[in-house]
Amino acid sequence: MFTKDVTRRLKVPATEQRAYAERLQTTLAEHALGNLSGQYVVMVDRSANVQALFIYFRAAPADTWQMIGASPVSTGRPGEYDHFITPLGVFEHTPANMDFRSEGTQNENHIRGYGKRDMRIFDLGWAQGERGWGKGGISQMRFQMHATDPDRLEQVLGIRHSKGCVRIPASLNTFLDHYGILDAGYVALVESGKSLWVLKSDREVTPWAGRYIVVVDSERKSRPAWSPLPGGKARAKVPAAADTAD
């Protein structure tokens, strides 16, 4: 389903898939989630030389995490005021920080920061983020995962380009939304009788819905071939102040 529905995909070699699976398990264990299984987990490598998102699954704690698919992303770009380095850790996607949907409107720089109309914004609430300007330090930032401008910015996913959030391809956003990959908490609310406007009526929710987004930094010193930089033509079309969108 990932291969069919997601248009921006990365072909990650098997050895790299296993290495990231080990990194995922280590990070989960560090957050008292070492036995997590039976649900999908999203992992993001914020390394400037990777900028990729991976979906993993395992049926039981004794199993090895298996990669479902991978896509390019853009995380926080330091160097300007109000730009955070995307925080590391394990973040729970919960209705306590209710998702919402993009209106598809342009900001003052003619950028649709949340993507086209009706794209879902996965809201992870307030997080402690490292300031990417001035003397650095830690401040609160609103941490979200969302689509980006489809005409000007989706083509440059794969480089750090956001104010701290994780920008993802529109087709991946739709995939996560339609199959409820991260919707375990939302599913529980619906099953208790709640009606949630943010959820579409035609969803096909997986029975293995998860709730965690894991952010790591592989600190790679060079760019792997499986995660290529966006081409020069795409980068040349990026308008001024485009990285001031979320």
Rank of each mutant, 00 (worst) to 15 (best):
R101M: 06
L88H: 12
G104Y: 05
M145C: 00
A236M: 14
R235I: 07
D99R: 06
A184L: 10
V214W: 01
P207V: 04
A147I: 03
V6W: 09
R235P: 13
S195P: 07
I68M: 11
D202L: 01
Q140C: 03
Q144K: 09
Y114E: 09
G129L: 01
A225I: 01
K116L: 08
Q25S: 10
P228C: 06
G113Y: 03
E219Y: 03
R77P: 00
D177E: 13
P169V: 15
L229V: 09
D183R: 08
Y114A: 12
F54R: 05
R18Q: 14
S71R: 05
L182G: 00
L88W: 07
T105Q: 02
G185T: 05
G125Y: 04
R120F: 01
D123C: 01
H31Q: 14
A245T: 10
A242W: 15
P72E: 14
R18C: 03
T3M: 08
D118F: 04
L172S: 07
S192W: 08
A48Y: 14
L124K: 04
A225T: 09
K194G: 05
Q51G: 03
I159C: 04
L172P: 05
R9P: 00
E16S: 14
Y81C: 04
Y212F: 15
R203N: 11
M98Y: 02
S171N: 08
T174W: 06
I85A: 07
L196K: 05
R8G: 12
G104C: 05
T86I: 04
D82E: 10
R160T: 14
L189M: 08
Y212S: 02
G231Q: 12
R9H: 02
A19F: 15
R117Y: 00
R211V: 04
Q106Y: 09
T206C: 02
R211H: 07
A241Y: 13
L124T: 03
M1H: 10
Q66S: 08
R131G: 03
L53A: 06
R23T: 15
Y20G: 05
A70I: 00
D202M: 10
Q25A: 03
R18D: 08
V205R: 13
P228M: 12
M141V: 07
L189D: 03
L172Q: 09
Q17M: 14
D246P: 11
D118T: 01
G104V: 01
H83S: 02
G134S: 10
T206L: 12
S139R: 07
Q106D: 10
R152W: 07
Y40L: 15
A70E: 13
W226D: 05
V44M: 07
